[in-house]
């Protein structure tokens, strides 16, 4: 009985090797493994320009934050990036407490995150 988390994955127009991932629900210790598997699979397939939309991510705990940092590190190692957009105040506070706000690329909205990817090209 995992906590509900759903990842909706779609292509990013005009961004080669790009994917948009919409996180919906709660990210915690009961579902980090399945989340890790899904995103790691994308990165292994070469989709290393990733934008994560957190508009509907209600909750994240330390275990969830751990894999977000892992995604960022893994994507950067492959000359890509893992950008986050639409983070709610509660989730942002947790990110900030562990200092991950200086390690993760965080944007106000998805459009800004995508524009930053396009300007990299």
């Amino acid at each position: 009985m995992d906590t509900q988390i759903e990842l909706q994955i779609s292509d990013l127009d005009n961004v080669p090797h790009g994917k948009l991932i919409k996180f919906m629900g709660d990210l915690d210790a009961t579902n980090v493994e399945s989340t890790l598997d899904q995103v790691t699979k994308l990165i292994k397939e070469g989709f290393v320009q990733i934008v994560a939309d957190f508009r509907n991510l209600r909750y994240v705990n330390s275990t969830g934050l751990g894999i977000l940092l892992h995604f960022s590190k893994t994507a950067k190692e492959k000359s890509g990036c893992f950008k986050i957009a639409n983070v709610n105040d509660n989730v942002y506070e947790i990110i900030e407490i562990i200092g991950a706000n200086t390690l993760l690329d965080i944007y106000d909205n998805v459009e800004e995150a995508i524009a930053s990817l396009q300007s990299r090209r």
Binding site: S62, I98, G99
Partner: peptide
């Protein structure tokens, strides 16, 4: 906090804060 490449070890840091 643990080093950035560790997936675990941040829980009690959050509780403390």
């Amino acid at each position: 906090p643990p080093s950035n490449d560790k997936k675990k070890g941040r829980g009690l840091v959050i509780v403390q804060m």
